[in-house]
Nucleic acid binder design. Sequence first.
DNA 1: TGAATCATGTAATAGGTTACATGATTCT
DNA 2: AGAATCATGTAACCTATTACATGATTCA
Lengths: 185, 185
Amino acid sequence: MKAPPTTVLGYALMGLLHQKAQSGYELRKVFATTPIGSFSDSPGSIYPALARLEKRRWTRAAGEAGDNPRQRKRFSLTAAGVTELKRWLALPVTRQEVASSMDSLWLRCAFVQQVLGIEETLRFLREADREMTTHLVSLREYQRKFMSSVEFSSGRLAFECGLAGVAVSLRGIRRAILQIERDQS
Amino acid sequence: MKAPPTTVLGYALMGLLHQKAQSGYELRKVFATTPIGSFSDSPGSIYPALARLEKRRWTRAAGEAGDNPRQRKRFSLTAAGVTELKRWLALPVTRQEVASSMDSLWLRCAFVQQVLGIEETLRFLREADREMTTHLVSLREYQRKFMSSVEFSSGRLAFECGLAGVAVSLRGIRRAILQIERDQS
DNA sequence: TGAATCATGTAATAGGTTACATGATTCT
DNA sequence: AGAATCATGTAACCTATTACATGATTCA
């Protein structure tokens, strides 16, 4: 239908810039040295992505000394950038995101509390809970219907690990919900 | 360095064609209706991918009636295709694959036993065990060093779920190894 | 001063996504 | 016959990847 405003990488960069203004090089190091999603740290992905954000006026680059383009730049979110980041984080959790874009969901999960606050986090986690529960049910149904034959068991292993991974994530989310509810009362 | 022979999608198609010769439409339905990886079922991805495989002589298309290009085709693996699939499945499990291409690893896992047999499956699973163990250790080290501060806990949630997911997968793989060893004796 | 690293960028290429197009078959 | 679905394909666009290029800074 309509093209999405930017890519998951774009939102990852915006989330990191929301924490603090940084240079492209520092952002690359985050991707290279921390287990935040699985984004490439290659300059060929980061700098074009930053340029796209700048063209949208969601970020602003401040050259630290003079206007030499080869100088270190400090990127920061604009007000419009913060708005867009918030919009993306507040987007409803869909069945499709849970089924085939868990990386995007985890990324939103990583930023939502800091950017939107605890109320919205709770809403977000409850939505994730609901959608993942549904997804898990349909995975189990599929397993019952089509994976019951013993055939080749490493194929089953792949399926079961995927299923177990979803189940674990769901448990984590439920625990987080309970924790927040406990803290609030 | 050098471009990979084909994409993960290409190997997914080859793995499915190894099970049985199928049409592009049937392959699309597999992606649309089963939880095998998260490949798009759009014709714009499947048919070009099949065409690439055919150009490499890894698959052959047999038109079922006449040579009308709009007729249903039945794709099957050639001998060279089987060789290439086996080569890919036998590739060593690397740290990098475990850290940022688990989808490729699960796909290999799903096909390895059927295509390479039980001996190679055991070797594959043991390699995966080794690399995932190492990865898990480094994740825990990162957690100890940088995630100890309480800061924003939904960020921690994302990290911990990722970590728990790896731990669960690893348990699954170890259980599979034990199962195979038990069956062999 | 020379080497390593910091820091930003570009060019070529290839793959995926969306939307569109087209013909064949099946069902009512 | 008309509608729905089966079935394959193409075109435009965008993004990521790889490799290369270039200048600035730091440190021995």
